[in-house]
């Protein structure tokens, strides 16, 4: 569980004790990545905040001013700088921010969101420990994902900067296309080991020379 209240001496906490959900697979990710073809790594401990607010309400506009906008519809991503907001549902959003934005490390993002929401209808929930982040990149990243994701991932359909909540390898995950050949995948923490191994298995063929 993530910290719900920042201790007074939060900056002095021993961060080396933290273990990310896919940490046991770190060496396997390193070994399984094929340089310049498809690479996989975990981006641990990103700050994530679950937002539930009507984006047309007053609270929604106040929250949007903190995050740099709220996405309008399925697939869209908004945000400024390091902070991104992914659309999960008509009134449900996922804020993804760097580790340092978490209040246990002195960040003020979550507190600012709470203050923006105020007492209005909605939720601001720290979900940093709910999901972990995989970064899959390389020219073959799309081919790897296509083995277990039924969305049309062709670049003419799925453009960079699109995030969709869907199924990958039969488990629910959020897929965010961050660049032309790079994806971020957000599986729930309990699925991280499974999806990590699934991706490694799907990547394995690209380590061998292509059979003509």
């Amino acid at each position: 569980m993530a910290e719900t209240a920042a201790p007074a001496n939060s900056a002095q906490k021993n961060l080396s004790l933290r273990v990310s959900p896919a940490a046991p697979l770190g060496a396997a990710f390193e070994a399984g990545s094929v340089r310049g073809v498809v690479e996989l790594r975990e981006v641990p401990f990103l700050t994530m905040v679950g937002l539930r607010v009507n984006r047309n309400s007053g609270a929604g506009q106040r929250v949007a001013s903190v995050t740099g906008g709220l996405p309008a519809g399925c697939g869209s991503v908004s945000g400024t700088g390091d902070t991104s907001v992914l659309w999960l549902g008509p009134e449900e959003f996922l804020v993804v921010a760097p580790t340092e934005a978490h209040e246990s490390l002195g960040g003020d993002l979550i507190q600012a969101l709470r203050e923006a929401l105020g007492g209005d209808a909605g939720q601001v929930v720290d979900l940093s420990a709910n999901r972990t982040t995989f970064e899959l990149s390389g020219p073959r990243a799309r081919a790897v994902l296509e083995k277990g994701c039924s969305l049309d991932l062709h670049p003419s359909v799925l453009q960079a900067g699109t995030a969709l909540s869907t199924e990958i390898g039969n488990i629910p995950a959020v897929l965010w296309k961050t660049g032309d050949e790079s994806f971020r995948i957000f599986p729930r923490a309990s699925f991280a080991d499974f999806l990590g191994r699934w991706l490694l298995d799907a990547m394995r063929e690209y380590a061998s020379p292509e059979v003509p």
């Binding site: 309008a72 519809g73 697939g75 969305l151 049309d152 359909v157 799925l158 699109t162 969709l164």
Partner: peptide, 9 residues
Amino acid sequence: GSASPDISG
């Protein structure tokens, strides 16, 4: 709408 990606086959 336009904001929604056309992933529909």
